[in-house]
């Protein structure tokens, strides 16, 4: 049985709007619409979609703080909304824009309170704390009040806090938002380590596609409450119908702004001696390069991979 099982899950909200002086009309908004997926233990899954697509609503249902309107849901073998309190001991949550730490207290005190809240065994707690302090470089920060921490430091503290009770699943909501490049890559390295060494399943919602590229072998794209894609990152390119680009620098520009003519690719831009040729993502570049080199005087060649942002924007706009 999969760790997370979602079957035909829906959630509607009733939104009341004033339509006259006194009259109010209730409209139903379907935030999540017949959603189905499974996540196996140890997976790192990226969950992406535009604002208002239903990401948070899904995560709220998975953690039991929102009751589904219909459908079946099982997380670690239990129904989240029925067993919310039991489930809290088995999951961890991190929100990039909120903190679970106590603002006025040193980081150490937040960790101590969490030890008591989750009744973490003393030895286990010390082991975990020592390990996280080393991996996240928190040692010197333990006695600093949380309000004095920088965003990157606070985020590291929040992630350690979410993992102290050895959760099986970690939900991360935009964990790298607002962080600088170094902090981001450090955080990602830590998450990879946690996933590999502790077998923690990660479900990550984000708008930063580099998070996905560097962490997740699987990506789910949600829009208007239902999945528009579920699979590998590479597959997303095919699904999105994206193209790769071969950039050719000719020795001399072709006369009369002429374009390179070759099988399996078409020129979409010309600038002096440089020409841009698009070809399908699933086609090999080798024969194309050979064909171009055989017919033209080529000074230089390079291949541009499609930006994942463009692929996803394409997916969103299709609906």
């Amino acid at each position: 049985m999969a760790l997370i099982e979602v079957e035909d899950l829906s959630r509607t909200f009733v939104v009341r709007r004033r339509t006259g002086r006194v009259r109010r009309t209730a409209t139903e908004v379907r935030a999540v619409d017949h959603l189905s997926f499974e996540v196996e233990r140890g997976e790192m899954v990226g969950y992406i979609g535009p604002n208002g697509a239903g990401k948070s609503t899904t995560v709220k249902m998975l953690t039991g703080i929102l009751v589904p309107t219909s459908g079946r849901l099982s997380v670690a073998g239990v129904d989240p909304s029925r067993n919310r309190v039991d489930l809290t001991r088995r999951i961890g949550v991190v929100f990039g824009q909120r903190t679970t730490l106590w603002w006025d207290l040193p980081l150490r005190d937040s960790f101590e309170l969490l030890r008591r809240i989750y009744r973490i065994d003393g030895t286990r707690f010390r082991q975990n704390l020592a390990e996280f302090c080393e991996l996240l470089d928190l040692g010197d920060l333990l006695d600093t009040p949380v309000r004095q921490l920088s965003l990157g430091q606070r985020m590291r503290g929040d992630i350690a806090a979410a993992l102290l009770h050895d959760p099986e699943i970690l939900y991360l909501d935009e964990p790298t938002i607002g962080l600088d490049v170094v902090s981001k890559s450090r955080l990602r390295a830590f998450l990879r380590e946690v996933n590999a060494a502790r077998d923690v399943t990660l479900l990550l919602t984000t708008h930063d596609l580099q998070d996905i590229e560097q962490l997740c072998s699987r990506v789910m794209v949600i829009d208007h409450g239902s999945l528009v894609y579920d699979g590998s990152l590479a597959g997303l390119h095919t699904q999105g119908g994206s193209t790769r680009t071969l950039v050719v620098d000719l020795v001399d520009p072709l006369p009369d702004e002429g374009r390179i003519r070759v099988e399996g690719a078409s020129v979409h831009k010309v600038e002096g001696p440089r020409q841009w040729l698009s070809f399908p993502t699933d086609a090999s570049a080798a024969p194309l390069v050979a064909a171009v080199a055989a017919s033209y005087d080529v000074a230089d060649l390079s291949i541009l991979e499609p930006a994942i942002e463009d692929v996803i924007a394409e997916l969103y706009s299709r609906r």
Binding site: T63, I65, R84, V85, D86, T88, R89, I91, V93, F95, R98, T100, I117, Y118
Partner: peptide, 13 residues
Amino acid sequence: RTGDVALDLYRPV
């Protein structure tokens, strides 16, 4: 007011 109270629901207390 800020909605942070939702985080309190993620704790077993």
